[in-house]
Design a protein around this nucleic acid. Structure first.
Length: 433
RNA sequence: CGGGGUGUAGCGCAGUCUGGCUAGCGUGCUAUCUUGGGGUGAUAGAGGUCGCCGGUUCAAGUCCGGUCACUCCGACCA
């Protein structure tokens, strides 16, 4: 991709209402755009790209764990919510409206009802179970007070999964597998997180665990043990204080987290009222036992930045970065720099399939190109600049800002094979770090 | 729901108290020149229903009444 063609409106100005690093840098880096300051956001090309990368990691790990992706309708008949009894208790957060025929609908804030509806029409026998279905699509919750950018918007991208089982034991087996799968996802995305005991809230059910991204800006108070992997939301560990002893004997610590995932052992809370029954081996009709599993995908973007930024901008992790490498041509009016930059762009991008952003802008100077690179947080920049005359280019590591030089012979670099050799050296280095 | 605040150019703001020429500033945007390794400098431009409705007045961004929206703190929720 060429920077000159990319719609990425970076800005020096901090948005009015932004206090969190993730909010500030997502706006300033041109990843997202606020829609009327009301908890709604447009994703610009770079934001969409990062979101798709995060989404791909989530999908890949779930598919590996045997889950199947579906897509439920975004608009759900209110009658389904009345069947489960949640139409009343969900309150104003549920956005309700009527169609032209005066039928009642809601915009889905979560989809237990809709998924149970799908399954009860198609699954009739114990032979079809267990089943784990998920979707990754928009949710709408009419929050009283949306804030913090993507952290708490009204419209957001969520992965919601639901599993169906013949017994409580089998559901618990799946629950444990989902916990492991979630750990893989969060680890791949480069997050520092804890799994904590949680309150099941409105969704209901018996046991639930939250996946907390550790960050001072988090809205949840949690208690964790640094010696073992015990952790709990203070909602369930109310009496616990800083320094109390864990079961393992080590002192507990109070900290803050961003709730990015939540898994529940649901039981039959929805299958019973909605009549999601199957015939067991004895021909007896019984309700399915369910689990439900959520990940706030758009919130993950915010969480990744909360943990990966500095005073200059974002420092995206490997599997979340919008590009693998940015090639910066310091001065496009310099023929030698332009030629080398274009050739390395072709060799690394087209030939070696690295996802490269080429900063080929003619009107911007070196300083602003560097500032934009730092703001966008692409892991590496290859700077093609003044050193070209002496046969020198440098690779900058965004996180450490350390530089590594690559050398070539300026007299013969324009030979086809020499471009390839230089690109190869950069490629090798990137693959090794 | 309680308490505060704000609506003026894409974004950030001044002007309103004390009514008065053609509504300004920064940034961004367009053009030309300049500069070219850390957000160059200059000149010339484009861009406005001063949130909306009504009132007072010779005259309203400014005063009065109403209304809508947004926002901050708290409560609520996850």
């Amino acid at each position: 991709m060429r920077y000159s063609k990319l719609l990425v409106p970076t800005s020096k100005e901090v948005p009015n209402d932004a206090t969190l690093a993730s909010h500030i840098y997502l706006i300033r880096g041109g990843f997202i755009q606020s829609v009327g300051d009301s908890g709604l956001y447009n994703l610009l090309p770079l934001g969409k790209k990062v979101l798709d990368r995060v989404r791909a990691v989530v999908k890949e790990e779930l598919d590996n764990a045997g889950c199947q992706e579906v897509a439920l309708s975004f608009v759900t008949p209110t009658s389904l919510w009345e069947e489960s009894g949640r139409a009343g208790e969900y309150g104003k957060e549920l956005l309700r409206f009527k169609d032209r025929k005066e039928n009642d609908y809601v915009l889905s804030p979560t989809n237990e009802e809709a998924m149970v509806n799908l399954v009860r029409q198609t699954v009739k026998s114990y032979k079809q179970l267990p089943l784990n279905l998920y979707q990754i699509n928009l949710k709408f919750r009419d929050e009283i007070r949306p804030r913090f950018g993507l952290m708490r918007g009204r419209e957001f991208l969520m992965k919601d999964g639901y599993s169906f089982h013949i017994s409580f034991e089998d559901m618990q087996r799946e629950f444990a597998q989902m916990e492991e799968t979630y750990k893989k996802i969060f680890t791949r995305l480069g997050l520092d997180f804890r799994v904590v005991q949680a309150d099941s809230g409105q969704i209901g059910g018996d046991g639930s665990k939250e996946f907390m991204i550790l960050a001072d800006s988090g809205e949840d108070d949690i208690v964790v043990c640094d010696a073992c992997d015990y952790g709990a939301n203070v909602e369930v560990a109310q009496e616990t204080k800083e320094g109390d002893l864990c079961q393992c004997g080590a002192p507990l610590r109070l900290t803050k987290g961003i709730e990015a995932g939540h898994i529940f052992q649901l039981g039959t809370k929805y299958s019973e009222p909605l009549g999601a029954n199957f015939l067991d081996e004895n021909g007896k009709s019984v309700p399915m036992v369910m689990g439900t599993y959520g990940i706030g995908v758009s919130r993950l973007l915010a969480g990744i930045i909360e943990q990966n930024h500095d005073d200059k901008g974002c420092t995206w992790t490997k599997e979340s970065a919008p590009f693998e490498l940015e090639i910066i041509i310091a001065n496009t009016k310099n023929e030698a720099q332009l030629t080398l930059g274009e050739n390395l762009y072709r060799k690394l991008g087209t030939v070696r399939h690295i996802d490269v952003l080429l900063d080929d802008r003619t009107k911007e100077r070196f300083g602003s190109k560097m500032k934009d690179f730092e703001l966008l947080g692409i892991p590496y920049a290859l700077v093609i600049g003044k050193g070209v005359d002496e046969g020198k280019i440098e690779l900058i590591d965004r996180k450490t800002m350390e530089k590594k030089e690559f050398h070539f012979d300026p007299e013969t670099i324009n030979l086809f094979a020499n471009y390839d050799a230089l690109a190869g050296a950069v490629y090798q280095y990137l693959k090794e770090v």
